[in-house]
């Protein structure tokens, strides 16, 4: 069983509107690098030049912020669900 990734809101456009994406990877960085192979430009929109997650984006593993874990090195297990959200301001 692989890990499920979902990109919500404006980030969904980065994965061509795909709702749930299955990825086999040992940690979140590796998963994003694999996704980059299918979705060109993904990493540059998510990560800064220094390789950290942009501060207007948050990544959650099973609803928990990965900043409370090992950030992009956070280990993934089969069946995990990773959710990515971005700040939005519309009202």
């Amino acid at each position: 069983m692989s890990t499920q990734f979902e990109f919500l809101g404006p980030l969904k456009a980065l994965v061509n509107g795909d709702e749930i994406i299955e990825v086999d990877a040992t940690n979140i960085r590796e998963a994003l690098e694999k996704l980059q192979e299918s979705y060109d430009g993904l990493l540059s929109r998510l990560l800064s030049d220094s390789g950290t997650v942009h501060r207007h984006i948050n990544i959650f593993l099973n609803e928990e912020d990965i900043q409370l874990k090992d950030n992009l090195q956070t280990a993934l297990s089969p069946g995990d669900k990773v959710t990515l959200i971005s700040a939005i301001a519309g009202g």
Binding site: H54, R55, G90
Partner: peptide
């Protein structure tokens, strides 16, 4: 704590630009 800073303009579509 959730979003320390706002997105750069190119990463921040508004409702005017993106619709609602």
């Amino acid at each position: 704590c959730l979003f320390p800073v706002a997105p750069d303009p190119e990463n921040a579509p508004t409702c005017v630009e993106a619709g609602i």
